[in-house]
Structures are given as C-alpha cells and as structure tokens.
C-alpha cells in the first residue's frame, strides 16, 4: 500500500451548464442568442454574473467585475493544495485539486463558502475531470503510469445532497481528459480512444454510443448550443451537435 501514498493523484471536478438546444427544426443554432461566454472543464477562470473567480495553486480569488473594464480584487479564500480547475454550476463552484473536489456555495457571491468535498473510492489513482448535471456529477479519473491505478474510469456521483457527494456508477475509459454534455449526451475526451460519446439518459448508467477517432488528442470540450468546440493538440475542432448523439465534423482550425 505504501507506494500508493507516495503517488500524486488528482480529481478535477467540473460541472457543465445547462445548454438550451434550439428546438426549431431546420436551422442550426450555433451561436444562439446566448450572451454568456463559456470556458472548458479545465479552466481556472470562471465568470458568474458580476464576479470572476480565479483559482491558483491554493486560493480562490474573487474579482468584482460589476464594472467589466475595471475589475477589483475583493476577496481571497484559502481552498487547499494543488488546486487545478474551477467550474461554476448554478450557485455552486466546483474546484478540482489533485486530492479532493471542493464544493463552494456562492449564494453570497463575494464570499464563497465551502459546503463539502468529494473523494472518489478511486482516490489513490491519478484522477482528472468531472461534470455535473442537475443532481449528478460525472468525473473522469485518469490512471497515470507514474501514479499507479489499474483502470481509468468515468465516475457518476450523486450530488443530490451537495454536502455529501456519493459515487453511484462507473464506465471504463482509456486516458480521459475534459468533458461536457448536451442534454442526455456526455462527451469525454480520451487521448487513447478519441472523443467518446455516452448516452446518460440513465444518470448513473452511462452507455457508450460511439467513439470518434481522428488521430488527434482531445483535451477538452465546450458544448455551446449546436456547436461542440473541441480543444485538441493541433488547435480546435468544431462539430455540429444538432443531433447530439452524432457529432458531425464541421472543420478544424490550426
């Protein structure tokens, strides 16, 4: 067991926004009417209303951007060690670190308050991103040669009780990175397999629909209306997800 304890592991806990798909048949809804911007599941900056939250290695910094041209640093909250990502979901922030997931309330947006932390039973592995949808959160826990572990997984957490996240299901994946979803379809970036498309109609029983292998390394995805924006090792690939089960390549950008 001792060798496990020397190993670095991480969980990046990410939540995805609810994205509204244009239901009007025919025209694609790429940009939509949405004025809000969106980052990926691996971001360290998150804009929520009049505040921007930024995580460094240990702290959560709160900037007031009520005057967008003139941000003010208004608060710094100590979070923990080896913080890597932040993702806002409704009035919560999910902050990923190499050890645990920190869940903060931003009901009082200037003063984030810690609610809980999530640890997978697979915590002794090196881990990576997760996503949340309503009362479910999806995490990819990446096995890394230097860090031990046997099998990388997609973990499904029950976050109904936000103060006590519980893992309820898993799916096997290869070498996963970022992820995101549109409605009942979850996209997982996998360095070995490509882009994996899961049906998550049954929240705790993800079913693999297909994988899209392009030879590129998918690092993260942003589902944005009918557009799936993929960060790859060669730049960006854009997919049409009007039919969310069947992403169709539109173009690649270098």
């Amino acid at each position: 067991m001792y060798r496990y304890f020397k190993k670095l592991f991480c969980i990046v806990f990410v939540s995805a926004f609810f994205l509204h798909c244009g239901k009007d048949s025919g025209a694609n809804n790429y940009a939509g009417g949405s004025p809000a911007g969106q980052g990926g599941s691996l971001a360290r900056f998150a804009v929520v209303g009049n505040y921007m939250y930024a995580v460094d290695k240990e702290n959560l910094s709160v900037f007031s951007i009520a005057d967008a041209a003139n941000p003010q640093l208004v608060n710094i909250v100590k979070v923990g060690f080896e913080i890597e990502t932040i993702f806002p979901f409704k009035d919560k922030l999910f902050i990923g670190s190499t050890s645990v997931v920190h869940i903060f309330s931003i009901s009082n947006p200037q003063s984030p308050e810690k609610l809980s932390q999530a640890i997978s039973p697979d915590v002794m592995r090196r881990c990576d991103p997760v996503v949340a949808k309503d009362t479910v959160a999806y995490a990819t826990l990446r096995v890394n040669g230097a860090c031990g572990g046997v099998q990388s997984i997609l973990a499904c957490y029950d976050v109904k009780d936000i103060t006590r996240p519980v893992q309820r299901g898993v799916a096997l994946v290869g070498e996963p990175y970022g992820l995101g979803y549109k409605d009942n379809v979850l996209y997982v970036c996998d360095r070995q397999r490509g882009l994996i498309v899961f049906d998550i109609s049954k929240a705790y029983e993800p079913v693999q629909i297909k994988t899209i292998w392009t030879g590129r390394w998918f690092l993260d995805v942003i589902p944005y209306n009918d557009l799936l924006i993929c960060w790859t090792d060669t730049g960006v690939s854009l997919y049409d997800i009007t039919d969310n089960r069947n992403p169709a390549l539109l173009t690649t950008i270098q």
Binding site: A36, G40, I222, W231, T234, V236, I253
Partner: peptide, 18 residues
C-alpha cells in the same frame, strides 16, 4: 497566425478564443 502550442478555449457568441 497558426497556433503553436494549443491551449484552453473560450467561446462567447460567435467569437472563439484559444
């Protein structure tokens, strides 16, 4: 110009940033 070391992406409306 072409990207050299592709990093994080961000989208707002029709504007994509990498």
């Amino acid at each position: 110009k072409p990207v050299v070391k592709p990093g994080k992406v961000y989208v707002i409306g029709n504007l994509l940033l990498q």
